[in-house]
């Protein structure tokens, strides 16, 4: 193979084709407007950034300042009490944990299965498109409508509100979010990884569960955590379903159950200063919870190497 493998050095052949037509360089346009435009865009983006971050910091600071005076160990662990009595938010905190946990248990497994189906099997079929469309509609649905719906199908027939009914309404809100993020994360896994699994003689099922889901795992966990964080502060779906109770959430399955968002709603509308302060304290607690879930999701489940 001599002629091909010999290195070719220093032999430059004259180009063929017509010579370039030289019309000279015309006078330049002024750069002023382009530079101005560039500067304006920068100023606007920095302003927008400051606005977004500023508002967030403002909210956080307000909650921190107003809420911290209520904060104590007793506040976190004691039962709620009416105006004039020493009380805490312990039952609401535990209630929120129960309601959110059960919501995740109800929503996450089927949502992940649906997301896998959409990304790996349904793809562009009619059924898959219909599922995606309904999920988008559900994500845009006002959460209070979901609360009313669960009231109608669960609370009214059973004759009692319950924490579980609250979980069901939060689960309805979580399902489309988790499904779509699962799908998105799986779609980001390159097709060549699927092909190389299949090329080794793996079944579609094995490729999906042991390779593709593993490759997308961090993104999927992050999606679930962010959905949990999102719904844990939802108030409207709980107003009719879990309602509120001054007791510990022993009645999670068959009676009203306290939760932080509903507590904030009730205390915030109260005229008593001690309850209002407790409301700020509860706001601080839920804000810290949501923020920590977000930070955990971002830090612990970040993809190290792609």
């Amino acid at each position: 193979m001599e002629p091909i493998s010999k290195p070719i050095v220093g032999e430059r052949t004259a180009p063929t084709g017509p010579a370039l037509i030289n019309l000279g360089r015309p006078p330049y346009k002024t750069l002023f407007w382009r530079k101005l435009q560039d500067n304006l865009v920068q100023v606007f983006s920095v302003a927008a950034l400051t606005l977004a971050v500023g508002v967030m910091l403002w909210i956080l600071c307000t909650i921190l300042v107003r809420g911290s005076e209520a904060l104590s160990w007793d506040f976190l662990t004691k039962l709620t009490a009416p105006h004039g009595f020493e009380g805490g938010i312990g039952n609401a905190l535990l209630g929120t944990l129960y309601i959110t946990l059960f919501a995740a248990l109800i929503a996450v497994p089927p949502a992940i299965c649906a997301g896998i189906w959409l990304a790996e099997f349904g793809k562009q079929s009619f059924l898959a498109d219909a599922l995606r469309f309904s999920a988008n509609v559900m994500m845009g649905m006002p959460s209070i409508v979901v609360g009313l719906f669960v009231y109608m199908i669960l609370v009214a027939p059973m004759g009692a509100s319950s924490g579980l009914a609250g979980s069901v309404s939060l689960a309805i809100l979580m399902f489309p979010v988790v499904m779509r993020t699962t799908e998105d994360m799986l779609m980001m896994v390159p097709d060549t990884l699927r092909e190389s699994g299949l090329a080794l003689g793996l079944t579609r099922c094995r490729v999906t569960l042991q390779i593709i889901c593993k490759a997308a795992r961090n993104g999927m966990v992050t999606g679930v955590l962010l959905a949990v964080a999102r719904v844990s502060g939802e108030t409207a779906p709980l107003l009719f379903t879990a309602q509120f109770a001054q007791t510990w959430p022993n009645t999670f399955f068959n009676g009203p159950t306290a939760s932080i968002p509903v507590l904030i709603n009730n205390y915030g509308m109260s005229n008593f200063e001690d309850l209002q302060t407790a409301g700020w304290g509860a706001s601080l607690v839920i804000a810290v919870l949501v923020l920590s879930i977000n930070i955990i999701a971002r830090v612990a489940f970040r993809d190290k190497k792609h």
Binding site: T192, L193, G201
Partner: peptide, 21 residues
């Protein structure tokens, strides 16, 4: 049978595709 076929015919792709393990 595709599984039998692919057991007999292996493939290497343009971009390396190590499994996430």
């Amino acid at each position: 049978d595709l599984l039998t076929l692919r057991r007999r015919v292996g493939m290497i792709f343009q971009k390396p595709t190590p499994f996430p393990m």
